[in-house]
Simulated scan of single mutants.
Amino acid sequence: MERGQISAWQFFVLIFGYLLGTSFFFRPGGLIAMAKQDAWIVPLWAGAAALIISLIWIKLANQYPGFTIVQICTIAAGKKIGGLIALLYIWYFVHLSALIIRNLGDFMKQTLMPRTPITVFHVMFLLVICYAVIKGIETIARATELLFLVVTLTFLFIFFIALSEWNWDRFQGMFRMNVWKTMKENRTLIGFPFMESIVCMMLFPYVRSRGKVSFILGVVVATLSLSLIVFFTIGVLGVTRASHDLYPMFVIVQEIHIGTFFEHLESTIALILLVSIFIKLSLTYHAAVLGLCQLFRLNDRSWTAISLILLISGLALGFNNVLENIAFIRGYYFEYMLLYGVIFPTLLLFLTWMKQIKGKQKVGPPS
């Protein structure tokens, strides 16, 4: 079982890296295609909605200090119904891990290594993630701190070089969007990436102090950062080009040329994506392993973590191509996330209040 502890700063870095893990790379093109010059506004209201939803999670965590969401399910709803809900959460963590690793495989196969079988990318990366998860949350947090600095400096380097292509004329026609229609079309942004942070309810018990503040701060900073990235993409590529590119950030870096010295810098953005996916996938994979160990009372997580490599790599092949993945995200993902991000937490909170009304005391931390 997990015994590690992380600081409030480490938790903030994990939340920030988790939310931007794949969204900064895969989200801008779709947002710009739907909202045009106003696409940078969409992450702001989506992040605000996610903050309101996350208050339910924080309230639930306060009712059960020292417990993860899997443990809360069995305490609040009983062993049978609560165990079923906990198992659904574990399934979600596994499914989300499969979606994340598939994003990595699609990118590597389409842009860098088209002749390599996609399963090779999945298994090789999952082996690294599995090792990190076996080592525990402290190891993941320390690695994230180091990688966070590398990613930030690399991204700032790309940002300042690409500003030479900036053109304010590309924002002409701003503030003309149909607010309701735009919110409806882009509701999936609330699900991916913001409501995916329900995974972090598996980490609250391992934060030494100020975990809730770090969580909220991480969501706010990630929201502002995603909005800035979309704004930057519009200013450099323009609406037409950005909306027709699957990976607009990759295109921006690919076209950077400074004399004959700085050329073909696309490997830098690939490095950023790999590090970001490592952070995000580590947390979802860790949540799945920890949830299984807590639900079935397993003391050794090593074999559980190793076994999940086969399951997740197999589930990652559920889509035939990247277009099917995008169609699933746009058509069903928001409603899918409502179940785990809103319905189940609200139900657990309601059951908790009902128990308190009947005279049961607030649950204390586990011994």
Rank of each mutant, 00 (worst) to 15 (best):
T74Q: 14
F93A: 10
G78L: 04
L87M: 11
N62E: 06
A48F: 15
A39S: 12
F93I: 04
A35T: 10
A77C: 07
I90M: 11
N103A: 13
Y64E: 01
N62R: 12
Q37R: 04
S54H: 10
L19T: 03
W91I: 05
P28N: 12
G47Y: 09
L104V: 14
I100R: 09
V42H: 14
L44N: 10
G83M: 13
A39P: 09
I53S: 06
K36M: 02
Y64M: 01
C73N: 13
W57N: 01
S23D: 05
F26H: 03
A33Q: 14
F67E: 05
A86T: 02
A77I: 05
K80G: 00
Q37S: 06
I52W: 13
K59Q: 04
R102C: 03
Y92V: 01
L51P: 05
W91R: 00
K79R: 14
I69V: 07
L87E: 06
A33D: 14
L55V: 13
L44H: 12
L55P: 02
A49Q: 08
Y92W: 13
G30N: 13
T22R: 03
I101S: 02
G78M: 07
Y64G: 02
I52C: 13
L88T: 02
G66N: 11
K80S: 04
F107R: 08
L87Y: 07
L84D: 00
T68S: 11
L88I: 09
Q63N: 05
W91F: 15
T68I: 04
F26T: 14
G47T: 07
R102T: 06
L87G: 12
P65M: 08
I72L: 05
I100M: 11
I58Q: 01
I90H: 11
G30D: 15
T74Y: 10
L87F: 15
C73S: 11
T22W: 05
I85G: 00
Y64C: 00
V94E: 06
A98G: 07
N62T: 03
P43R: 12
P43Y: 12
C73R: 02
Y92M: 10
W45H: 14
F107H: 07
G47P: 08
S97C: 06
A49F: 14
L104N: 10
G78Q: 03
I56Q: 00
N62W: 01
G21W: 05
W57H: 05
G105R: 09
I69G: 00
M34A: 12
F24Q: 11
D38M: 08
K36I: 01
F25V: 12
K79Q: 08
I101C: 03
L31Y: 10
V70Y: 10
I85W: 04
V94G: 06
R102Q: 04
A33T: 03
P28F: 12
N103I: 11
I100E: 01
I32W: 10
L88R: 01
A98Q: 05
A86S: 13
G82F: 11
L55G: 02
T74C: 04
L84P: 00
F26L: 15
L87P: 02
I100G: 08
L96C: 06
G66F: 14
V70L: 09
I90N: 08
C73I: 02
A77G: 02
I53A: 13
V70W: 12
I56W: 00
L44M: 15
Q63P: 00
K59I: 04
